[in-house]
């Protein structure tokens, strides 16, 4: 029982970076833009988020406050992802470039920028970019009071996570409400399904595509920062981050473009990533066990393509550009 509880907690903890990546990409894809650059944006977000927290502490010294550092890290990670997504939008929406290749270019660019910044900070600070333990606590410890966390079972299961878990869940809930219950959300979905119809109805297709992609990219990039600051222990670790963004893109398909399914989908994949630690099987070597999330992703991709249900389809215009003149 205790083992299962630990696994669930670890799954939610490790799945949170994926949750941000996925929810952000859901918003992007709802506008009909297939941004494959999530991996790159998460790298940029990770490097800038870490940098923001580190240089903030360096600037103000011991007076550094945890909440401010968290807010700055979120802000800079968001801006990094938004900037990457803005390049993507400009190239694909305004300059009509191919979305697939542009997304791959953003991945190459973003992973390069992330590693470049991570390495540059390391060299400039002579060795080690890490925040102090008191700041780390603001990123990694639960925001709830001690007595709630000490409740048996429930305390661990509900109140023991870092702040980003709750923020991520909140973002997913808001996103579900926005897409399903608001006028702007409806118009956004119209743009993704049929931009020509949306255009004829007087919806500004270009504006929706830009906004959804830029905000979505920003949210995805926060996931990279969350990975670096929590899972990786607040030091730059590009090897650990590698693959997260791509799993997030796959999760969008897995959760069928709905933010609510991303909630448990990300936890499921977070669990698959650490299952080898919690449920070691003697007949599967650790290194082979570690590829489980990728194998499951492949199985999911195939399963989704086999079950072609009407309501489970991607936005109709996903991946194709819209030119009013070429209707």
């Amino acid at each position: 029982m205790n083992g299962i509880l630990k696994l669930i907690v670890a799954a939610i903890f490790n799945g949170t970076p994926l949750l941000y990546g996925t929810v952000g990409e859901v918003l992007t894809e709802k506008s009909g833009n297939l941004n494959l650059g999530v991996e790159g944006m998460m790298y940029m977000g990770g490097a800038l988020g870490l940098g923001a927290a580190f240089y903030y502490e360096k600037a103000v010294g011991a007076a550094a406050s945890g909440p401010v550092a968290v807010a700055l890290a979120i802000l800079f990670a968001f801006l990094a992802g938004a900037a990457g997504a803005l390049i993507f939008s400009f190239l694909t929406v305004s300059l009509r470039a191919n979305q697939n290749v542009t997304g791959l270019a953003l991945t190459i660019f973003g992973t390069g920028v992330g590693q470049f910044l991570g390495e540059y900070m390391r060299v400039r600070e002579q060795g080690y970019v890490a925040v102090s333990n008191s700041l780390k606590a603001a990123f990694q410890l639960s925001p709830f009071p001690r007595f709630l966390q000490d409740l048996p079972v429930l305390g661990q299961l509900l109140f023991g996570y870092n702040i980003f878990v709750y923020l991520g869940i909140a973002i997913a809930l808001v996103m579900a409400w926005f897409l399903g219950r608001t006028r702007a959300g409806l118009q956004l979905r119209a743009v993704g399904e049929s931009p020509a119809t949306a255009d004829a109805a007087g919806i500004n297709v270009t504006r929706y595509k830009y906004l959804a992609t830029v905000i979505g990219g920003g949210i995805s990039a926060i996931g990279g920062m969350v990975y670096i600051m929590t899972v990786a222990g607040a030091v730059w670790n590009h090897e650990g981050l590698s693959g997260e963004g791509w799993l997030a893109v796959a999760l969008v398909i897995f959760c069928l473009w709905t933010p609510l399914r991303a909630l448990w989908g990300s936890a499921l994949f977070g669990g698959l990533m650490v299952l080898y630690l919690y449920l070691p099987l003697s007949f599967i070597p650790g290194q082979l066990y570690k590829i489980l999330p990728y194998v499951v992703t492949v199985v999911v991709l195939v399963a989704v393509s086999l079950r072609q249900k009407r309501e489970n389809q991607p936005p109709e215009s996903l991946g194709s550009a819209y030119f009013r003149e070429e209707r």
Binding site: G40, L91, L95, R96, V113, F116, E119, Y120
Partner: peptide, 28 residues
Amino acid sequence: MAVPVAISDVITGVLLFFMLGCEFFIRY
């Protein structure tokens, strides 16, 4: 010169962006 080696990826990415963008000016 202590420039991180990832600079080659950054330049490669920028190259791709410019190349993707310039196709537009060839077609329109």
